[in-house]
Design a binder for these strands. Sequence first.
DNA 1: TAGTGGTCTAGACCACACA
DNA 2: GTGTGGTCTAGACCACTAC
Lengths: 256, 256
Amino acid sequence: MPVDLPPHTDADGPALPAGPAFSPLYQQIKALLLKSLQGGEWKPGEAIPSELELAGRFKVSQGTVRKAIDELATENLLVRRQGKGTFVATHAEEQIQYRFLRLAPDEGPSTGMERHFLDCRRMRAPADVARALALKAGEQALLVRRTLWRNQAPVVLDEIWLPAALFKGLTADRLAQYAGPMYGLFETEFDVRMIRAEEKIRAVAADAATAELLQVAQGSPLLSVERLSHTYGDKPVELRRGLYNTISHYYRNELS
Amino acid sequence: MPVDLPPHTDADGPALPAGPAFSPLYQQIKALLLKSLQGGEWKPGEAIPSELELAGRFKVSQGTVRKAIDELATENLLVRRQGKGTFVATHAEEQIQYRFLRLAPDEGPSTGMERHFLDCRRMRAPADVARALALKAGEQALLVRRTLWRNQAPVVLDEIWLPAALFKGLTADRLAQYAGPMYGLFETEFDVRMIRAEEKIRAVAADAATAELLQVAQGSPLLSVERLSHTYGDKPVELRRGLYNTISHYYRNELS
DNA sequence: TAGTGGTCTAGACCACACA
DNA sequence: GTGTGGTCTAGACCACTAC
């Protein structure tokens, strides 16, 4: 690539205002790797080619490939394992903890929670959901509802909105049968990889229906967690509205 | 340093189980830089010596210093500025936004908020506060209470607990006079730098006193944000209990 | 023993800020 | 122009994993 694509600012005509800046070689390599990931050349959990091989393929030094991979690794798209190789990140084998779940119990270990699926319906996406998921007007969406339990008590009620076009054949049964994180099933069965998400968190009062499902009094304060998840290319593919009972759990966050 | 401190695993006796592992040179350099930061050799906002100079001082290559600085920069302890130098991170000149405040308004720009200080009292630390701040039994603490306002309405009520020994002379007046982030004042006036924090978030119901201060109905759901902030060496130096009215604001978070 | 990622070096050159 | 961080290279060697 360095032969065809000099790392300098695009040499062309008189200087444009707010020009194209400057793209380091390793950023170009990173973009190429990203394209391969997006194109499915390497699947989640698989190893990508070795640094030396990639360096040969792209005609750059190993150090340059390294820097590209470094950035993808800090973004959690790749995982390096010394002596073994570099692997595509996956939600399907997060042994310890669900990667995106920030809920921790006040006491005891942060073990997995029991999942109960309530229903999985196909319907026209409401306006706000359609907007968040960038669906065309009237496009179909799936609504999955489920609860998460710990110690025989419900803690979380999730409403999960998905573009129906991407998840053909998804049913509550299929969800219930799959062991492991939901995002793992999305990867292996529907080829949808969750890369990044934004959450908006508020405190709300439980309505009657929610109160019953979470076994709390109506009006009880609940944590409302609205998550918008994205795949490659920052494409939104899931809108998840969670209500958490934070009597014996809390949402943890790190600031730096 | 590489002369006196070979980067190999500590050569000593028969292999211990779970041995001391192995410390790369750049990690040792990083530790030395950290010590200088902690010791106040370079103050927040100041430039540290150039990479070349540090390389000379430590007798390592520029690349090794670079990697050490890289890590400190991604941890937000240092800030690199091309062409100018590398600077010690500071809360005192965060022009855009308070670094640790994750509260955003539903609409409009995330501008600064108006601060009203209610009081600043010195007292014996309650047991839970003492435990969190690692204070000795009966050691004195400061309790600062304040509200944050936007658009002539109160949004946040903070209870801020500080070790009295570190903040001699802190008063509500002094806080009110200082323009800019509170952590900026802590840096310049008390030489306490906030590096990292953990937050535990829950939904709670407003009690009578809180309801009045935040101008909401008693029992209204509020976001409870308990923040434990640390300086160098992971020493806890602030326990902050915030209650946020999330009617027109939300707590934002990024997952990856 | 071979292959992979991880560390370290030395040197050349580029982009940016500032005087 | 000088000094700073940023990029890129080529090569040596180390640590970990697997066979």
